[in-house]
């Protein structure tokens, strides 16, 4: 499974950091809280790793148990993060509407 050469992995890592810096610098301070909870949900990407580890033919093996536990945490992270971010963003409204 781990066939990704280190230099490729590092290249991807470094480039992604630059992309992150470029994008995030442009986020206005008004949206910093949704940015945190939203990016937090994205960091729940570790759910993929948890899925991979949860699946194994050595069912009783401790690594599978840890995978399943990781899966629970990662799912809370993903679902909670996206839902709460959505809740917040729906509240940001433009101009007074009549009231």
């Amino acid at each position: 499974m781990t066939e990704l050469p280190l230099v490729v992995a590092l290249t991807v890592f470094v480039l992604a950091i630059f992309v992150g810096f470029e994008i995030i610098t442009k986020v206005p301070s008004t949206l910093h809280t949704p940015l945190m909870s939203g990016s937090n949900a994205i960091s729940g990407i570790t759910i993929i790793g948890a899925l991979i580890c949860s699946y194994g033919d050595r069912l009783s093996h401790i690594s599978v148990n840890m995978g399943v536990l990781a899966l629970i945490f990662a799912t809370i992270n993903v679902v909670g993060g996206y839902v709460v971010t959505g809740r917040m963003l729906r509240m940001f409204k433009q101009k007074p509407q009549g009231k």
Binding site: M1, T2, E3, L4, A9, V12, F13, V14, A16, I17, F18, V19, G20, F21, I23, I24, L35, M36, S39, N40, I42, S43, I45, T46, I48, G49, I52
Partner: peptide, 16 residues
């Protein structure tokens, strides 16, 4: 895991 999705996404959040 040798998984680019995790590497990239984690780096984005790390930078943020």
């Amino acid at each position: 895991l040798g998984n680019t999705a995790l590497i990239v996404t984690g780096a984005l959040v790390g930078a943020s």
